[in-house]
C-alpha cells in the first residue's frame, strides 16, 4: 500500500524526518500540507488537530457506510447489507458469548469500539493517511470513555452501596472486613490501571507498527537516494501484512478487554 506512496515527491522528506524530533513517520496529507503551507493558519490548525482530523474522516466514512447499508433493508441481504449484518451478528455473538444474556445492552458500545479502533488502526496503511490511534491522546480518550462507562454501569447496576461493596472486595466475614483497608486501595488502583494499560497497549502497538513501516520506507528511500529520483525500494512491504494482523488483534484485544471489564463490574450470578 505504501508502494503508491513511493512515487510521492515528498517521500524524500522521510529520510530527513527520521532524525528529527519524535519517532519517524510516513508523511500524510496533513504533514504534506503543513510542509507546503506552514505559514498559513488552516495548515497550522490541521497540523495541530491532525489526529482529530483523521478520526473525523473515519467517523464520516463509517457513518456513510452504515447509512448506505441500512438505507433500504431487504429481507434477503445483499452486498453491503449482507456484510454489515455479518459484522453486527459476529460482534453480537462475541459480546453475548462473554457477557451472557444481558450483554446485548452493551453490544452497540463495544461493537462500535471494535469497528472504530479497527478502522483507525488500518487507516494508517492507506497512503497519505495516518492512524489516529498511534497518538496517545486518541487511545486515552477511548480508554477514558470505556472507564467512565464501566464505572457508570457499576453504579447503575450494583447501586452505590453495592458499588462500594464491590470495591471493598465483597466482605462477608470477619477476615473479609479486616481485609477491607487493604482491598479498597488495591481495587481502586487496579481500576485506574485498566484505562492506562488499555490506552498504552493500543498506542504502543500501533505507533510501533507505524514507526517500523516508516523506518523501512526511509531505509528504502535512502538506499536509492544517489539516483536523485523520487523513488524508493518498498522494503516495508512485508511489514504491512504484519501491521494488518496487529491492527485486527489490537482492536480485538481492546474490545474484548473492555467486555471483560464490563463482566467484572456486572453483578455475578454466583454471589
Amino acid at each position: 500500500m505504501h508502494l503508491l506512496l513511493n512515487v510521492f515527491p515528498v517521500v524524500m522528506t522521510v529520510a530527513e524526518r527520521a532524525g528529527a524530533e519524535g519517532p519517524p513517520e510516513v508523511p500524510n496529507i496533513v504533514t504534506i500540507l503543513y510542509d507546503q503551507f506552514s505559514s498559513y493558519g488552516f495548515a497550522q490548525f490541521l497540523h495541530h488537530w491532525e489526529n482529530v482530523f483523521f478520526s473525523v474522516l473515519i467517523a464520516i466514512l463509517l457513518g456513510v457506510v452504515s447509512y448506505v447499508a441500512s438505507r433500504r433493508p431487504a429481507v434477503i441481504p445483499r452486498g453491503l447489507q449482507n456484510f454489515m449484518e455479518w459484522v453486527v451478528e459476529g460482534l453480537n455473538s462475541f459480546v453475548c458469548g462473554i457477557l451472557g444474556r444481558e450483554g446485548s445492552r452493551y453490544v452497540p458500545f463495544l461493537g462500535t469500539l471494535f469497528i472504530y479502533i479497527l478502522c483507525m488502526n488500518l487507516f494508517g496503511l492507506i497512503p497519505g493517511m495516518k492512524s489516529p490511534s498511534s497518538s496517545i491522546d486518541t487511545t486515552a480518550a477511548l480508554a477514558i470513555t470505556v472507564f467512565a462507562y464501566v464505572q457508570y454501569t457499576g453504579v447503575r447496576r450494583l447501586g452505590i452501596l453495592g458499588y462500594l461493596d464491590h470495591f471493598a472486595g465483597n466482605p462477608r466475614d470477619v477476615i473479609g472486613i479486616l481485609l477491607v483497608p487493604l482491598m479498597f486501595p488495591l481495587h481502586i488502583i487496579s481500576e485506574l490501571a485498566k484505562p492506562l494499560s488499555l490506552s498504552l497497549r493500543l498506542f504502543g502497538n500501533i505507533l510501533g507498527e507505524d514507526v517500523l513501516i516508516a523506518v523501512f520506507v526511509g531505509l528504502g528511500v535512502t538506499m536509492v537516494a544517489f539516483l536523485h529520483l523520487p523513488v524508493g525500494i518498498p522494503l516495508h512491504f512485508p511489514f504491512v501484512f504484519l501491521a494488518m494482523l496487529t491492527s485486527v488483534v489490537q482492536a480485538l484485544v481492546f474490545a474484548s478487554l473492555s467486555t471483560i471489564y464490563f463482566l467484572m463490574m456486572l453483578p455475578h450470578e454466583e454471589h
Partner: peptide
C-alpha cells in the same frame, strides 16, 4: 490466548513507550 498475549505483550509495549 489472544487476551493473554495482549497482557504479556503490554509489558514490552510499556518499555517501548
Amino acid at each position: 490466548m489472544i487476551i493473554g498475549f495482549a497482557f504479556v505483550e503490554a509489558l514490552t509495549i510499556y518499555a517501548l513507550v
